[in-house]
Design a protein around this nucleic acid. Sequence first.
DNA 1: ACCTGAACACCGTTCAAGT
DNA 2: ACCTGAACACCGTTCAAGT
Lengths: 244, 244
Amino acid sequence: MASSPSVRGRSRSRHAAGLPAVTAERIVEAAARLTAELGVENWTLRQLASEVDAYPAVIYHHVGDREAVVSAVVDRSLRMLSMPGEELPWREWFWRLLTELRLVLRNHPGVARRLSLYGPSLSAAAPTIDRGVRILQRDGFGEESTKVYILLLSIACQLIAVEDDRAADEAARRRGVESLSSYRDRRELPGLAALGESVHSLAQNPDELQAFFEEHYEYAVQRCLDGVAYRLDVLRRDGQPSAP
Amino acid sequence: MASSPSVRGRSRSRHAAGLPAVTAERIVEAAARLTAELGVENWTLRQLASEVDAYPAVIYHHVGDREAVVSAVVDRSLRMLSMPGEELPWREWFWRLLTELRLVLRNHPGVARRLSLYGPSLSAAAPTIDRGVRILQRDGFGEESTKVYILLLSIACQLIAVEDDRAADEAARRRGVESLSSYRDRRELPGLAALGESVHSLAQNPDELQAFFEEHYEYAVQRCLDGVAYRLDVLRRDGQPSAP
DNA sequence: ACCTGAACACCGTTCAAGT
DNA sequence: ACCTGAACACCGTTCAAGT
């Protein structure tokens, strides 16, 4: 109802109405704002248009279709990520990177999903990728450096993507927790009962959920780092039997 | 155009037209067929309706909204999963489970994503969860058994979900690979160049992609199992110093 | 109880026309 | 070059009316 631009700028021309010119930059900025608030999948082109006091077709003129707007938002988010210093050992470097990645991406729900599906645009991510792979090479991963880099980043993005979606659908989440915790007295299914028991406290105290997500992320990332560290041992044992 | 049910059954009543009665089961079966062919997100209620020679409102009458249809499809898929025997050691048991999980879910694209977001319905998944957690408890994971179970299953579902989506969008995938491999001669970015080189062969030979996906899944799952195995060592070392 | 047929309120996208 | 305003072809969902 209040979404038509003519409601705010009632003259036929933006200029006559004293509205600022629509630019691609302003559109992407507004899209990033909507994304931070609603998530990348939960705003419409019409909403975005009214956010910059314009018609939907104007978005197409300045940026392109929805896909183009979204990938500009993804790039913008990625550029907020800062890199840990390259003097750090690989495990510490990745631990810091992935911890900050979560903080940045969780502020723009849906971006992590896009990253795990299409990867980053290289213009935004090249420095990070380059340094990450070089650090793995330096620390002995050899040919497997690229595999390990992809593994760690993609698992992190996937975990964050799921966290985004779960955070957005509180009702579904609560249903799931309650249904699980209802099994906690089933003596004939002791494994399932243990799982029910372990989520039971979450069902009672919803404030713990944020902390639970964070803990789950850290636990998963640490286990992956453990697995990769173990792999490094194997590579060193089986590779050329120690460098000069 | 050819989607109106009256095209096929031109009488006003299904019975008079000799059409079989619409049942919830037949609807879910058709939905599973469409899902296998197109993926869970890529068919519409109107398509599903015309698949059973009925009007969209009939789906609502027998099953419910789109959400209800989809979760019936998810359940159906899950019941196709068979469990490895409980005599296996934990690592072997999970390796077999997750290998078969991928085979089953890849035949119903989009189901893995739903599982990673909302979890399984317990009626379909209770036996598997129970056995998996009990095996971890038996093999020494103690209190962390439930965490480890969730970790392994959720990472597997996430990997499969991404594979589903990437397989569906071949164009985007090829763009990504080509853009990456264009960096393979950048001497000033040696880490990125290594990554470009490692995907270069994929860009040339698209037949390898299927194998690449499978290998990536196996590599990721093995590294997670490595990490969990390492964790078991830590738990044994720090826990009560060996049982009687 | 089951099905029909139309309607509702959306969506992304396109396009001729204005200035 | 930039914006207007309407239209197009969809979508999930609802509902009164028929049998």
